[in-house]
C-alpha cells in the first residue's frame, strides 16, 4: 500500500513536470531540451530558499542534517519555486525562442537551439551549486503522517494534491478564462488566432511561465521522493529526468495536457513496479529506466498521437462488437 502510494506520487510528480512541457508545446511546438534545466532550477531554488530560512551560516559544513526537510511551514517556498521556474522559462522564451519563431525557424532549429540553452543554463547552475557548496549536500526528506495505519510523507501528499490542483485549475483556466480560451485557439490554429486579434506572444508567454513553474515544482517533489541523483552532481537532476518527461509527454501525445497526466501515472506505476521487481531478483534497478524508453518507442511506432490520439469511442465500439454487444460507432472521438 505504501509502495502503491509512493508510485502514484512519483507518477504525479512526473506528471507535473511533463505537463509543463506539454503545456507550452501545445502553443509553441518546441520540443524543449532545456525543460530539464527548469527542473534543476526548481531544485536549486528550493534548496537555496530553505537554506536561507534555516540560516545560511548554519548550512555550511557537513554537520548540518536535512535543513531541506519539507515541512508544512515551507509551503510558501514551493510557491516561490513555481514563480522562479516560471520566470526562467518565460525568460528563455522571450530571449531565445520567440525571436527565432518570428524569423520562421523550423521545429528542428528550435529544438537544436534548446540544446544550446540547456548547456548554458546547466553551466550557470554548476557555477551556483559549486559556489554555494552546501547546496549539493542534503538528501532531504519530508514530514510523515500516519493516515489510517498507512505511513505517507508530505511530499507524496503534496505531489498528489498539487497534481489535482494543477489539473483542475488548468481545466478551469483553459475553459473559463479569456486567456485560456485564446491559448486553445492558438494551439489549434496559430495563423487564424493571430488573424482574429489574439496576441500569440502573450498567450505563449503565459504558457511558458506556467510550464516552467510546473517543471520546477514537480522537480522539487521528485527530488524529495527519490533523493539526489546518486553518482551525478545535483545539477543534473533535471537532465536525469528529462527523458522520462519526454516519455510521459509522448505517451500522452505531445501537447495534450490530460493525455500527459494519464501517461505519467501509467509510467510511474510501471517504472516503480519494475524497479522493485528488479531489486527483488538482484538486478540493478536502474534497468527499469528501460521501461519509459521502450514505452515511448512503442507509442511512436503504433500510435504516434499518444493516448490523446486514440479513437476511444471507436475502440469501445469494436470491443463491444467483439463481445457481441451492439455498439454505436463513434467518429473521431478523443480524450
Amino acid at each position: 500500500m505504501e509502495f502503491l502510494i509512493y508510485s502514484l506520487a512519483w507518477g504525479m510528480a512526473l506528471a507535473l513536470m511533463a505537463s509543463g512541457l506539454s503545456f507550452y508545446y501545445a502553443v509553441s511546438k518546441v520540443a524543449n531540451f532545456a525543460h530539464g534545466e527548469y527542473v534543476s532550477v526548481g531544485v536549486i531554488a528550493y534548496l537555496f530558499l530553505v537554506g536561507l530560512e534555516y540560516g545560511l551560516d548554519k548550512c555550511r559544513g557537513f554537520n548540518i542534517v536535512n535543513y531541506a526537510m519539507l515541512t508544512l511551514d515551507k509551503l510558501w517556498i514551493i510557491a516561490a519555486v513555481f514563480i522562479i521556474g516560471g520566470l526562467v522559462a518565460a525568460a528563455s522564451f522571450v530571449v531565445v525562442f520567440w525571436p527565432l519563431m518570428r524569423r520562421g525557424a523550423s521545429p528542428l532549429q528550435l529544438m537544436v537551439v534548446s540544446i544550446g540553452l540547456m548547456f548554458i543554463l546547466r553551466f550557470i547552475l554548476y557555477v551556483v551549486a559549486s559556489t554555494f557548496d552546501w547546496l549539493t549536500l542534503p538528501s532531504p526528506q519530508a514530514t510523515t503522517f500516519n493516515v489510517a495505519g498507512v505511513r505517507v510523507n508530505l511530499a507524496e501528499v503534496l505531489a498528489m494534491i498539487l497534481a489535482v490542483i494543477a489539473t483542475v485549475s488548468i481545466a478551469l483556466f483553459t475553459t473559463k478564462t479569456l486567456l485560456g480560451i485564446s491559448m486553445r485557439a492558438v494551439a489549434d490554429n496559430p495563423d487564424l488566432a493571430e488573424a482574429s486579434g489574439i496576441s500569440s506572444f502573450r498567450v505563449q508567454l503565459v504558457a511558458w511561465f506556467i510550464g516552467g513553474g510546473l517543471a520546477a515544482v514537480g522537480g522539487v517533489l521528485m527530488f524529495i521522493l527519490t533523493g539526489p541523483p546518486g553518482e551525478r552532481p545535483i545539477v543534473e537532476i533535471g537532465w536525469m529526468n528529462l527523458l522520462s518527461i519526454f516519455a510521459a509527454a509522448t505517451l500522452g501525445g505531445l501537447g495534450s495536457f490530460y493525455g500527459t497526466l494519464a501517461g505519467s501515472i501509467i509510467l510511474g506505476l510501471a517504472y516503480n513496479q519494475v524497479a522493485a521487481w528488479l531489486l527483488d531478483i538482484g538486478l540493478d534497478p536502474q534497468l527499469a529506466l528501460a521501461v519509459p524508453f521502450s514505452v515511448t518507442l512503442f507509442v511512436l511506432l503504433f500510435m504516434p498521437q499518444g493516448l490523446a490520439g486514440v479513437d476511444w469511442h471507436g475502440l469501445l465500439a469494436r470491443v463491444q462488437k467483439k463481445v457481441g454487444l451492439r455498439g454505436g460507432g463513434g467518429v473521431g472521438g478523443s480524450l
Binding site: 520540443a31 523550423s106 521545429p107 528542428l108 529544438m111 527523458l243 519526454f246 516519455a247 509522448t250 505531445l254 529506466l289 528501460a290 519509459p292 524508453f293 521502450s294 515511448t296 518507442l297 512503442f298 511512436l300 511506432l301 504516434p304
Partner: peptide, 22 residues
C-alpha cells in the same frame, strides 16, 4: 529510426535519443 521515421523531426530526435539511452 524506423519507429519514428514518418513523424516530425522532434519525435524522431526523441526516439533516437531514447534508443541511445537503452
Amino acid at each position: 529510426t524506423y519507429p519514428a521515421v514518418r513523424l516530425r523531426e522532434d519525435y524522431l530526435a526523441i526516439a533516437l535519443l531514447m534508443s541511445a539511452q537503452l
